[in-house]
Amino acid sequence: MTLRLRELSVQAAGRTLVDRLSLDVAAGHMVGLVGPNGSGKSTALRCVYRALRPTSGAVLLDGTDLASVPLRESARSIAALTQESHTELDFTVAEVIALGRTPHSRGNGPLTGRERELCRTAMDRLDVAHLADRSVLTLSGGERQRVLVARALVQEPRVLVLDEPTNHLDVRHQVRLLSFLRGAELTVLTALHDLNLAAAVCDRIAVLSHGCLVASGAPAEVLTPELVREVFGVDATVVRHPRTGTPQLLYDFVPFDTSSPSPGAVQEGTR
């Protein structure tokens, strides 16, 4: 299933949060949104999973404008993990994961045998099966994050929208989750802060700054020292991973210079 953002703009309180963003995510590919804090990544993702209505432009799913699709129907195709995902009710892990079947259910009937198997498989994949009977209120941040990803998988989406999915995860679970997503044959649009993780797992990277798309392409094309300096305000050396060949960034840690441009500052004409 293809995902396309077409001239997407979002304005709020007199500010432009996303400015005419156009981006294509091919079926089965993983595209990473990167950029400084406040660059518009989360705002763009909210438009995709329909928590926010764009001021102008459109989100197209297989060529169909999502604005013309009932919310329940689009929820059968698109699952989201948001930065604000949380559960304040005293549900068990198994109950939270089962909520992923809500867009497909009719009424409050019990899960079918197939749906129970979906839940078991998702729990195994995310290494949370041993937590099935625990209250989500007792989990660590990383455990809860894995439960919420499992819930999204149980939804059986064709498109996954993930806002910082590796937040709170230890290195093992970061690698395990992103490796799974890489091979899951899903269409994935994800915001990531870690440029090295983005380079390792994404087919393409889109760089945002001040709501504008400033670069888009394969990781090796996009993640250059010049772009990292211009957009993020830091100096970095780009090296190749010895086994995969993907670009990896080695950052230069130097005393903070208050006279340097603020991160995300992009000169006119680069947008």
Rank of each mutant, 00 (worst) to 15 (best):
R15H: 15
L186P: 00
V207L: 08
V31H: 02
A67F: 02
L177P: 11
D203L: 03
T16D: 10
S74E: 01
S42V: 08
E84T: 14
N37D: 10
H29K: 14
S216C: 15
V175D: 01
V34I: 14
A98E: 15
Q11S: 15
V154K: 09
F180P: 00
R120M: 05
H173E: 02
F180S: 02
V18Q: 06
H130M: 11
A58P: 05
P103I: 09
V239C: 06
C202W: 12
R146F: 06
V128M: 03
V214M: 08
P263C: 04
G141W: 05
A199C: 15
T112H: 04
A44D: 05
R229S: 14
P247R: 02
L21P: 10
V266P: 05
R116P: 02
L139K: 10
R114K: 13
M1A: 13
L23Q: 11
L195N: 06
P263Q: 04
E117Y: 00
L137C: 12
Q11K: 14
R151I: 05
G141D: 11
R240F: 03
V234Q: 02
H168Q: 11
G38N: 04
S9Q: 11
V159M: 12
A122F: 04
V201E: 06
L148R: 00
P242V: 04
N37V: 07
H210F: 13
L21Q: 07
S140I: 10
L192V: 12
S42C: 06
Q145R: 14
L186Y: 04
T87F: 05
L71N: 01
A265R: 13
N196P: 07
T187H: 08
